[in-house]
């Protein structure tokens, strides 16, 4: 990755989020509120992104390792926890980062808490690695990520 190229990719991705309405937490929650007055717009975001993605990722498939199909507890529990946070606030990681430009205290606090959550996961992973080493087991046998085996 060249920095100037990844800056352009981040910009295009972020502009897409803005145009799509993903950067408005109220709109995201309006999509998630299927029992209320439902705004289905974000289903169109997924359709547009995946429609293009199916073609481009097929072209790019030689550049990437084969996709994993492994389903484990960490994947399911982690995704469920992520969904609770996403529903509570209306931010997933991309829109949360984009919202930093507003310099709003709530956006800044959310990103700080998100970094803390990321750091906590790394800490749990390294603690488990240390415990495994002390126990004489081979640390990291399950994979690079000590906490989830990914």
């Amino acid at each position: 990755m060249r920095p100037i190229f990844s800056l352009a990719i981040g910009l295009l991705f972020g502009v897409g989020l803005c145009v799509a309405g993903m950067t408005a937490p109220a709109k995201v929650q309006g999509f998630l509120d299927v029992a209320g007055t439902w705004d289905p717009s974000l289903a169109f975001v997924m359709a547009g992104a995946i429609g293009v993605g199916l073609v481009l990722f097929r072209i790019a498939r030689r550049r990437l390792p084969a996709p994993s199909h492994r389903v484990d507890a960490a994947l399911v529990v982690g995704s469920l926890l992520f969904g609770v946070g996403w529903g509570l606030v209306g931010y997933c990681p991309g829109p949360a980062l984009a919202a930093l430009s507003s310099l709003d205290p709530k956006a800044l606090t959310f990103v700080a808490a998100m970094l803390a959550g990321t750091g906590l996961h790394r800490l749990v992973g390294s603690l488990r690695d240390t415990a495994a080493e002390l126990g004489g087991e081979r640390a990291g046998e399950a994979g690079a990520c000590g906490a989830c085996g990914a």
Binding site: V77, L81, F82, G85, L115, T118, H121
Partner: peptide, 14 residues
Amino acid sequence: AGGLLVGFGTRLAS
């Protein structure tokens, strides 16, 4: 709480 859950959950789920 939302930030912590999003940060931790997304890493657990990779």
